[in-house]
């Protein structure tokens, strides 16, 4: 069981959250007509073995989107911050 330190609710079980994927990808500007930049955003991932920044949605808690640092090799949890205001 992964336990996530929600900045609003405190330490909660992973079952209260849904996973939102890699938080390092950024959405291109809406007027970007390059196919490749949208391809990268929608489909391509670094998929690291180790430190990973990722979105989680505290869907059964405060309903905030969070950015969590987690190690994909051993599931160790790092910092957890609100995603709001990070501008993606």
């Amino acid at each position: 069981m992964i336990r996530i330190n929600c900045p609003v609710c405190g330490l909660r079980d992973e079952t209260e959250f849904t996973y939102g994927g890699d938080a390092s990808v950024t959405r291109p500007p809406i007027d970007d007509t390059q196919l490749s930049s949208w391809m990268d955003f929608v489909f391509m991932r670094d998929n690291p073995r180790g430190e990973h920044r990722e979105f989680w949605h505290h869907v059964q808690g405060c309903r905030q989107w969070l950015v969590l640092e987690r190690n994909t090799a051993n599931h160790a949890i790092g910092s957890c911050t609100l995603a709001a205001g990070r501008g993606t």
Binding site: I2, T18, N74, H75
Partner: peptide
Amino acid sequence: DGYNSYAQRGGLP
């Protein structure tokens, strides 16, 4: 399990 992982070890949920 639903999240990126290379751990070859899953969770109880």
